[in-house]
Design a protein around this nucleic acid. Structure first.
Lengths: 111, 111
DNA sequence: TAATAAAGGAGAATAATTATCCTTTAAGTT
DNA sequence: AACTTAAAGGATAATTATTCTCCTTTATTA
């Protein structure tokens, strides 16, 4: 299986059936939900698009291109922001869902 | 009507029926969607919780308490982050959905 | 006022997710 | 190995959220 990055349930189901052809969608949901509950997997809810799942990693920014639907991670340290947010709010933070949307470079050229 | 802050469809429907008792849910969705498309209203997708709507305002951080479901805005300037994200990715950004989750101060006290 | 367009309403249809209930598989014990 | 119990999986029904269809009502303008 190739590196998955971000994948939605439908895609994941297709992928998994390659190796476990009899798995049912209900089972997939059950397992995904268990893993999300234990923070092994993170669900990223994205406006206008199906939820995406990714292996949980350090907080980071997601970029969504509203034109071509490209969805990528941005390598940019958000810890300073989280620390500031935490100290200002007194929240004990352990999860983040940061999605910025706009138009990617390629789509800007296509005008 | 009191200041709404963040509201989900169900709550909004209840509120609106007070003044427009005959409005249907379909109409509400149509109008909301039109306003979201024109960026008058922003939909905030939140893990484990129904989507929330808010009047569109400058990019900001949302905090979700996973214990009591409190959902609030955090007054913290995120423009530096957005600028950095934009210049690093060459995206033209115009929308943000930033949700940090954890445990609020009150819930931390509750052991 | 008649003609046309725009918005709304009711409920059907669709899509995503969860729940139910039964079967299969696995693990542990004697 | 056979028996017992628990855990996981499968099929499908049920639920929920949202969108679509189609018809009616309201508004606009000639």
């Amino acid at each position: 299986m190739q590196a998955m990055g971000h994948i939605n349930i439908e895609e994941l189901y297709t992928q998994i059936k390659v190796q476990f052809s009899s798995i049912s969608l209900a089972t997939l949901y059950k397992n995904i939900n268990a893993m999300v509950a234990n923070r092994l997997i993170t669900e990223v809810k994205v406006p206008n698009v199906k939820s995406k799942y990714e292996i949980t990693k350090d907080p980071h920014i997601h970029l969504l291109c509203d034109t071509c639907s490209e969805f990528i991670d941005l390598d940019l340290d958000v810890n300073p922001l989280l620390n500031e947010a935490s100290s200002k709010s007194h929240y004990e933070l352990y999860g983040s869902c940061i999605v910025l949307s706009g138009v990617c470079e390629k789509c800007q050229e296509k005008v």
